[in-house]
Simulated assay, not measured.
Amino acid sequence: MERLTVGVGGMTCANCATTVGDALASVAGVESATANFAADEATVEYDPTATEPAALVAAVREAGYEPVTAETTVGITDMTCTNCSQTVERAVGGVDGVVQVDANFAADEARVEYLADTTDRARIEDAIADAGYTPVRDEGGDGDSEADRREAARTAEIRHQRNLTLLGVVVSLPLLAFMADHLLFGGTVLPETVAGVETGWVQFGLASVAQIVLGREFYANSYDALVKNRTANMDVLIALGSSTAFGYSVVALLGVLPEAGLYFDTAALILTFITLGNYLEARSKGQASEALRSLLALEAETATVVEADDGTETESEVPLANVAVGDRLRVRPGEKIPTDGEVVAGESAVDESTVTGESVPVSKTPGDEVIGSTINEQGVLTVEATRVGEKT
């Protein structure tokens, strides 16, 4: 059994506490549940194999009360596949107090909802690191925003993968030449020794550099996947292929298998090509991130909020950060629509080319959805905000 404390808002009396306690106790796998309206919290003992924190939080909400949760988005620089995302989700989901986690390797991030009274972002970051991945940590007090830290981490990753790729090319080109000489010319073009060293040992030296420098990350990630996370991912496949070619070649070079060929070139080229792919992927993500930042730079800085008082409408200009879901906004011709919303009054054509790429303005009438940062071209629109901030 595990014990979990859930902060609960909205409890005002003993009857509220009883309602919350009964709602939690009704969840399958809950052994006992008590709520204290004075402390604004509920304590639950439950079987983690039969239920999870997300079900407990849902039970509180269904009872009409609001669990005290927080949300955070953690940047992760080295997820490469769906398996990586699933591993992160399992690792973070195992942290006490985590309600829900959604990891996205394409976006290099994990969105986490958690019980603020039970855990915090630091523990979530530690869980990601223990799973073998690199979180963009919130250092606190360094003056950099989350976006700045993630951009710095992404830039460092691009530079790192580029340098590894260049090194891979340097050690692989001579190996490629040896392979071409052997396959195309029967080994008659290149000399049998280089500076008095047999070419087989030269190939061994070049491939060893690739194994140590380029392969280190793949082998480390494979160890984390197999030993820590008890799963296999793409790194395991890469490490298996490269190490098999390298190991077989070493055995052949030592004369254990006299008739066997050398495949040092294969061992190095596998790592080089995969590293090149990682570099191109990191660079494309960086370009996509830059395009997104450029798009966000088009966002309006203020919004005109319409308020009705005794049948009289008043307008006030407020910072965009102060706009809440449900606010009604007035958008005049030529102005940017401040945030995602729904047209409640007026008709116009909206230029959505900055978001969709469609050059022809789209007609908007009451009931139609509009996208933040697009431009109202003709009539006056009254828009009710449906998503604000990071949720747009």
Rank of each mutant, 00 (worst) to 15 (best):
T82R: 13
E31D: 15
T82G: 15
A91F: 05
G21S: 12
S85L: 09
T69N: 02
A54Y: 02
F37K: 09
V60G: 04
A38D: 02
T72W: 09
Y46Q: 08
A59K: 07
E89C: 09
E41V: 07
V92R: 01
Y65K: 02
E89K: 12
T77P: 00
E52P: 00
A23K: 04
Y46P: 03
A106K: 06
T87Q: 13
T77H: 05
D22A: 13
V30K: 08
N83M: 14
T80F: 15
A35T: 05
V27A: 05
T43Y: 00
F37M: 08
T34D: 13
E62Y: 00
Q100Y: 12
C84Q: 08
A28I: 06
E89H: 11
Y46M: 10
I76V: 15
A33P: 07
E66W: 02
C81R: 11
V57F: 02
N36F: 04
V74P: 01
S26A: 15
T82H: 08
V95G: 03
G93I: 03
L24E: 01
V92P: 00
V57R: 03
A42T: 04
C84H: 08
N104D: 14
V99L: 05
E62T: 11
G75K: 08
T72D: 09
V98E: 02
F105A: 06
T43L: 12
N36D: 15
A50V: 12
T82A: 15
V98A: 05
V44H: 04
E41F: 02
F105Y: 15
T69K: 04
T49V: 12
G75H: 12
D102P: 00
T34V: 13
L24G: 05
V30A: 11
G29E: 05
A54R: 14
D102A: 14
T51V: 09
A33M: 07
D47R: 12
Y65I: 03
A42D: 02
I76L: 07
G75R: 11
I76A: 06
D102I: 07
T73V: 15
A33H: 05
G97P: 00
Y46A: 10
A39M: 13
M79L: 14
V68W: 00
V20H: 03
V92F: 01
V30G: 06
Q100A: 14
V44Y: 03
G94Q: 09
E66T: 15
T43N: 11
S85F: 09
E31A: 14
S26F: 01
T72L: 14
G75M: 12
G75T: 10
P53Y: 02
T19P: 00
M79V: 12
D96H: 05
V57G: 04
A23M: 06
A28N: 13
G94W: 03
A25D: 07
V20L: 05
V60W: 01
D22P: 00
A106T: 14
A54V: 10
A91Y: 05
A33I: 08
T49Q: 15
